[in-house]
């Protein structure tokens, strides 16, 4: 029995290895357009986390176009595919919206481990380089040592940090941060919040409270509510974006960890279903590894 299972597993392993070659770049697309080509394309898209619904839409589109235009060779599909993907991301790119209110407040949200604190650090660095004065609000009072982690970033970027003790009310930290930034005339407040799963209702309410606190200073703030999404996450990130958007009115997305081999294809269904602008892409641990989102570059990487 055990041996049978082992053999079975081994076989599965070999198979998977053989098939692991299917990526769009490795996929031999310069061949006759037939069902097997579409099947391979489908697998390649699924592998990039594009998800079954969006993938089916793309394949349907390609099939229809191929028929309409009488295409014969897969090579002719390449451009169409790229165009389709870019068009699916249309309306989902955008720059940071700053109001120059002194302070502009940017709120960062996301599930645990998505890279919020690191992203806050990188953005602080960006703003500093532009000559802006930046305040970091350590509103993650929950995770052990989260405040220390942000303190290190404050040092690195020479930003001012406002913090309370661990376990303190995050809204109170935010109040103090915005309040002091206002009286000192600082340009930007970056609010780092505790990671939370979108399924935890009470934690989503806590975010709403933080938002209300910010609104006490200015109805226009926070000028951005940015959801930080882990690019290695699969179809669940659609749920995350949906719930965060519903409960906290997310204004933009930052997708992180695209420096590995993950492609972040879940952005396609997220954009397709939710139309939230994607602002930045995190591509490494270095302080400068944060790039504005460029749909064309993203799609090229996706198809690579």
């Amino acid at each position: 029995m055990l041996k049978a299972i082992y053999e079975h597993l081994k076989k599965g392993l070999q198979k998977t290895k053989e098939q692991a070659k299917i990526g769009l770049s490795e996929l031999n697309i310069s061949r006759k357009i037939d069902d097997s080509l579409f099947e391979d394309l489908e697998i390649a898209l699924l592998k990039a986390d594009v998800g079954i619904n969006a993938t089916e839409e793309i394949i349907e589109f390609l099939k229809k176009e191929a028929k309409k235009k009488g295409l014969k060779n897969g090579e002719e599909l390449k451009g169409l595919l790229k165009e389709k993907l870019i068009s699916m991301l249309k309306g989902c790119s955008g720059e940071l919206r700053l109001l120059n209110e002194k302070p502009d407040v940017i709120l960062f949200l996301g599930i645990n481990g998505s890279g919020k604190t690191t992203t806050v650090g990188k953005l602080a660095y960006r703003f500093k380089k532009e000559g802006k004065s930046v305040v970091l609000a350590a509103a993650d009072t929950f995770r052990a040592a989260a405040i220390e982690q942000l303190e290190v970033w404050a040092e690195r970027t020479e930003a001012r940090i406002v913090k309370h003790k661990p376990g303190a009310d995050p809204a109170a930290v935010v109040f103090d941060a915005v309040n002091s930034a206002k009286s000192r005339g600082d340009d930007i407040v970056l609010v780092d919040t505790a990671g939370r799963l979108h399924t935890k209702e009470h934690l989503m309410k806590e975010l709403q409270k933080i938002k209300r606190t910010i609104k006490k200073f200015s109805e226009n703030q926070p000028c951005e509510t940015l959801l930080v999404l882990d690019g290695t996450i699969g179809q669940n990130s659609i749920n995350q974006a949906k719930v965060f958007k519903e409960s906290t009115d997310v204004s933009g997305i930052i997708i992180t960890k695209l420096d590995g081999t993950a492609k972040g294809g879940a952005l396609i269904p997220i954009c397709r279903e939710l139309k939230i602008p994607i602002k930045f892409v995190g591509v490494g641990e270095g302080i400068e590894d944060l790039q504005p989102f460029d749909p064309e570059a993203f799609v090229s990487a996706l198809l690579d």
């Binding site: 699924l46 592998k47 990039a48 986390d49 290695t232 996450i233 699969g234 669940n236 990130s237 879940a266």
Partner: peptide, 12 residues
């Protein structure tokens, strides 16, 4: 391993 990871999880 994060249970939410997508397709790349297995490569990693």
């Amino acid at each position: 391993a994060d249970a939410m990871q997508g397709q790349d999880a297995i490569n990693t």
